[in-house]
Design a protein around this nucleic acid. Structure first.
Lengths: 147, 147
DNA sequence: ACCACTTCAGTTGTGCACAACTAGATTGCG
DNA sequence: CGCAATCTAGTTGTGCACAACTGAAGTGGT
């Protein structure tokens, strides 16, 4: 930091800027796969289950239906997932990866490792960072009325 | 973390989630002041200078004119800043806080401290987090073609 | 002086984030 | 049972993030 802008003292701003920088790091590879970063994290969760409801996906990603509905609609249009109303409870929509969607998994499998290397962080740094970020997130979530 | 979603291993996702959680923590106070979080960080930089160009503001915030132009337009409409074309170099637009805009500064002055307390982080944690986030951001920015 | 190159802010189009709301399905209490 | 409260996903509207582009203004080489 060369100039005293005051921003560098704000953890909040560092989080905001670092998050966008990381997303930018993922962008080229994800663009090649035809998806965006939020779509990628949603797919990661979907890939791990035979099916998942919009609600549970939202709980994991901390996103509401206002964000997820259009995002999932786009994934469905691309043929990467299917959406089906539940028969027992017609309120819930079950999401499943299509074969085409599952195929994408292989294409982006090594991304996190490749990009983590680019950050020049030691394993210890990653652990520390992960611990602190989790604490910040849960503390912020607790105090907030949102979600 | 109760379930193995795979996301919790992703520094990238933790950054993304923590950043949104922090923004949510700021939201109620900023909403009371009539501004959004990105407008707040932009104003913090503007408050520290008698004037600043859109370009320099963008360099500090890591945002391009595509994001800043409409954001600054809204701040101008609210009467918080003025925008004036330079006389020597007519390409640059100089931004200045209005008295009304400067008055807002007092209203949100204690925000970072109040909210930092809510996170239950020690001074050491904050320093560690800040250092790691800065490293992540600069590393990501270096590898990226963006900006 | 000429002109290709660069710089700056702004516009357009797409997609995300979130508040506020809607509509239908389900639940549970009296 | 009847019906109000709750829960689900989706829609609408606002504002941010970013790619791609525009147009005007400045710059440098010849």
């Amino acid at each position: 930091m060369q100039e005293p802008t005051g921003l560098e003292q704000l953890i909040c701003f560092e989080l905001y800027a670092a998050s966008r920088a990381m997303t930018g790091l993922y962008r080229p590879a994800l663009e090649a796969a035809g998806i965006t970063y939020p779509q990628y994290v949603a797919l990661r969760v979907i890939w791990q289950r035979t099916r998942i409801s919009v609600r549970e996906l939202g709980t994991i990603l901390q996103l509401d239906s206002g964000t997820l509905s259009p995002l999932l609609k786009r994934l469905e249009t691309q043929g990467l997932i299917t959406r089906r109303r539940g028969t027992d409870d017609e309120r819930v929509v079950w999401i499943t990866a299509t074969p085409q969607g599952s195929a994408l998994q292989a294409q982006v499998a090594d991304l996190p490792q490749r990009l983590a290397c680019a950050l020049d962080l030691t394993a210890e740094d990653v652990t520390t960072l992960h611990t602190l970020l989790t604490r910040v997130r849960s503390a912020a979530a607790t105090k907030s009325t949102t979600l």
